[in-house]
Design a protein around this nucleic acid. Structure first.
Lengths: 337, 337
DNA sequence: ATGAAAGCGCTAACAC
DNA sequence: GTGTTAGCGCTTTCAT
């Protein structure tokens, strides 16, 4: 079934039918109704591919994320999807699996589809401008989120990770901790570095000693939270608190702590970056830096829509400020000697 | 940049360049290399939309799910994405938000995009064949998953929910429980009905009395697990165990149980449908019916690829058998009088 | 092994 | 208001 048949059936030309379908251009009310009725009757559904090619608008948005399975990105996608739906945009989803090589191939695939816009959260490896050259060259509007590129600033939505790191550390300091360990994110990411910077800033401001051996570089994955926490608990006897820089690693830390039969905060205090809805539901009291993720997804989508409207690369940055939720896991209960 | 420019630069015709890009048809080795080199040099990326229109193959697969945010569907998508990647297929993702009205609109949008295949998990409302008529009429190969249509069988991957319901109930009976409540899924779904059927089957076989007041119709959402559990704990004093028919409702149940300061299994035994990775990690011991979800996602994708290859509607059904993981939450500790 | 030409299903000037 | 016509950027016969 194509537009030509509708034209024949209705007695009008292809263009008139096209105008009805696209709902633009001059068509008399009666004509419109007549054509609409026929479309309804024969269950005609226009070919979006042909429309895209002809109009040079794909009405499609590509979302590129590092890991579909991660509930954080699930929530982001939910927010994006919500806005895209309302704007009749289709959503292509790609996962790079935190792999910069796969990411490169994904970029190529994405451009082939000629989406009207691109949303991208880069993989955890160190990224410079040249790593997204294909996207830049394509001229397609895009917005970054969460993770930043080192040598240039692009339109995007990011979190104030320095503030988050600061708040978490400050909470521990205010509870009386002196010897605070941190399990960071990878130093190849702005997020990893900024949260650490927040930690250092808080320690300095409050006149606490920053000791290199209290800094453990993690990689944002479960195992790294588990292993580093074990190390801390075994080697660093004076440590009374740990600031863990994301939720996956916190889950790993919880496992390590449980295996050692330690209690939070009695034996070890912690603050986590990123709240997890299950913490609350399951009655696990972990103080955490909190971000409204679905809402952020909506922000990201809106920013992209703006870029698409102006077909620009505005380099506009939206910074989302995290907050701290206290649930007593940060308390200092006994001082180790 | 289009194919014509590559043709000019290389001195060959559009057709030859096209053959190189599609890697099909006769092209001499030297010609191919020459053209490939030029494509590389000028960073030419073919227009997938034009290719789709011309070749009548979109290389795109649409995945329609009820709720993107639900980690169950996140895991499924991960599995699907894995297989689609390997087959160079793009993935369009649509969420119907468990809303049959939105679902209808989504179907329309999906067909417009002329995907090469469709993967669909219907929303929780009662579905008959007519509700997916648009898809059927389109002629596009599709596979259903998890949730079935009442009046006809279509190609798909489903779980043996009767067996799952049976295993869960049997575990409780074997632990010595007599008075077992069940919080079911909605009766508008095969899943809800089948899990209940499994429950009844186990009760009958083991000569336990099935009492209507032990059957609570839930809706698979958190609140319904919470509310129904509260009801059970308050009204049904003789109940020593609850079989909760999905993981979201189990989270709700856990909250209700915690609010009443009851212990599992000391005060109330439970078995949950669907394991949750966080149960284990967070040290929450809940016996549960387990399914390998990401693996299932891969099965689904493979089944669709088969359908696409044969461009058929085979009505082939794959049934995935769930298993039971026991973690002591099913134990009978004290008998109520 | 390569090229010429028609056409995929639609949109968008432009003409009337 | 409506129709005519020329593409959109490719693929795919059919020649040669």
């Amino acid at each position: 079934m194509k537009i030509e048949e509708i034209a024949k059936l209705s007695g009008f030309s292809k263009s008139t039918v096209s105008r009805v379908i696209s709902n633009n251009g001059y068509v008399s009310k009666e004509t419109k109704e007549k054509i609409l009725k026929i479309i309804e009757e024969v269950n005609y559904i226009p070919n979006g591919i042909a429309r895209s090619l002809s109009s040079n608008k794909s009405n499609t948005v590509a979302v590129i994320i590092p890991d579909i399975q991660n509930s954080y990105f699930g929530d982001i996608i939910k927010g994006i999807s919500n806005i895209m739906d309302k704007n009749n945009l289709h959503m292509l989803v790609y996962s790079t699996d935190e792999n910069i090589k796969k990411e490169k191939k994904v970029f190529q695939n994405v451009i082939e589809q000629r989406p009207s816009g691109i949303i991208l959260s880069i993989s955890l490896q160190y990224h410079k401008k040249k790593d997204i050259k294909v996207l830049l060259d394509s001229g397609i509007p895009f917005v970054l989120f969460d993770r930043q590129i080192f040598d240039e600033t692009f339109t995007g939505v990011f979190f104030d990770d320095i503030k988050g790191g600061y708040l978490a550390t400050e909470a521990l300091i205010n509870s009386g901790h002196e010897n605070i360990a941190i399990i960071t994110g990878p130093f190849s990411t702005t997020n990893g570095l900024n949260r650490l910077e927040g930690y250092k800033k808080a320690m300095l401001e409050k006149n606490k000693k920053i000791s290199e051996e209290n800094i453990y570089e993690g990689n944002f994955h479960f195992d790294s939270g588990y292993e580093n926490t074990k190390k801390i608990l075994e080697k660093n006897k004076k440590t009374t608190a740990i600031f863990i820089c994301n939720n996956e690693m916190t889950l790993g830390a919880l496992q390590a702590i449980r295996e050692k039969n330690l209690k939070i905060p009695d034996d070890i205090a912690i603050v986590s970056y990123d709240n997890h809805k299950y913490f609350e539901i399951l009655g696990i009291n972990i103080s955490a830096i909190n971000r409204d993720i679905e809402e952020t997804g909506m922000e990201i989508a809106k920013l992209l829509l703006e870029e698409m409207k102006n077909s620009s690369r505005s380099k506009k940055i939206v910074i989302v400020s995290p907050t701290l939720i206290l649930r007593n896991s940060e308390k200092l209960v006994k001082i180790k000697d």
